[in-house]
Design a binder for these strands. Structure first.
Length: 108
DNA sequence: CGTATGACTAGCT
DNA sequence: CAGCTAGCCATAC
């Protein structure tokens, strides 16, 4: 079962934040790390996404790098699937990147 | 407990 | 703009 991952407080927070990302919006690894309480744990966010217990509750495709580019994706066909999903939600991809100025998630 | 690793970021060349 | 380095943190072994 999913213990090693979700059990850990850090991952738990990351997952919680990640699944809070609204549809049609995207968040950066750093942003999630910050919301999770560790602005320097941007890498941990990536690790957490890679270890994602359920891609259903964790829209990892809505998580992109700080400049809007996407580095990896363990589900589907990888980056390609990630892009397709984002576009499917209304997020336009520009040169394999996302316009954070427009789509970056803002928890208001 | 120490070492290795990773879907990162920011800075410099 | 592309490539490389250093810093940083949590997990896995």
């Amino acid at each position: 079962m999913l213990k090693t991952f979700m059990e850990k407080t850090t991952f738990k927070k990351i997952y919680a934040v990640a699944k809070h990302i609204p549809e049609g919006n995207v968040a950066t690894y750093k942003q999630i790390a910050t919301l999770a309480g560790n602005p320097k744990a941007s890498r941990i966010v990536g690790i957490a996404m890679k270890h994602n217990p359920n891609t259903t509750i964790i829209p990892c495709h809505r998580v992109v790098a700080s400049d809007g580019s996407m580095c990896g994706y363990s589900a589907g066909d990888g980056i390609q699937t990630k892009i397709e999903k984002l576009e499917s939600e209304g997020v336009k991809i520009r040169n394999s990147k996302v316009d954070l100025s427009i789509y970056q998630w803002k928890d208001k």
